[in-house]
């Protein structure tokens, strides 16, 4: 499970070294607070959630959280260098980097980890409907970019993610 946790931390912070550091701190916190683990919860879902919460907690303590959450192009790209001759999907990497972290993690949990919407929602502390709505918006956006298709008209097909006047 360690490589999966490491991948989650890397994608979260957008940097392999920072990801390793975050994972180390989060694992220490998990060991110290293991009593919070509820029997019956999938261990991976709990661990991913703990890493995410640990990151949020640290971010809130930071003087400039927005600057802290910014990621570097080269370091983010380096996450995808798995093998020397492997194909590097630059458009997809650029798209992932452009996403807010919660959306990036939604993709990872559903498409990378194969979680259902409920489990992904438990990790990110949102409802399954929010996960579904994010996936629609992100996947449709990526699909449009990759196929050079004009973005779908919101009035025709896309459900609003938030009630009017409550945009994030």
């Amino acid at each position: 499970m360690l490589p999966r946790l490491k991948r989650f931390a890397d994608v979260l912070v957008g940097d392999r070294d920072e990801g390793a550091s975050l994972l180390g701190r989060a694992l220490q916190a998990m060991l110290a607070e293991q009593h919070r683990y509820r029997r019956g919860t999938a261990l991976d879902v709990w661990a991913f959630g703990e890493i995410y919460r640990h990151w949020l907690h640290e971010l809130r303590d930071h003087a400039d959280p927005l600057a802290r959450a910014k990621i570097d192009d080269a370091r983010f790209g380096a996450l995808f260098h798995a093998e020397q001759d492997s194909y590097l999907d630059v458009p997809v990497i650029a798209f992932l980097k452009s996403l807010p972290v919660q959306q990036r993690l939604t993709l990872l949990l559903v498409y990378g980890e194969g979680f259902d919407h409920g489990s992904a929602g438990r990790v990110l502390d949102v409802s399954p409907d929010t996960i579904a709505a994010r996936l629609v918006r992100i996947t449709a956006g990526l699909s449009d970019q990759l196929s050079d298709r004009a973005p779908a008209q919101a009035a025709a097909t896309v459900e609003p993610l938030y009630p009017e006047g409550l945009s994030p």
Binding site: K6, D89, L108, D144, L146
Partner: peptide, 28 residues
């Protein structure tokens, strides 16, 4: 065609996340 494009995007996302995992396994 729209479904094909969505499937294509889905597959490329999966491949990208697989590439990260492969690197983590080498590191570990």
């Amino acid at each position: 065609a729209r479904v094909d494009a969505l499937k294509h995007a889905h597959a490329r996302l999966e491949a990208a996340f697989e590439a990260i995992l492969a690197g983590e396994e080498v590191d570990v």
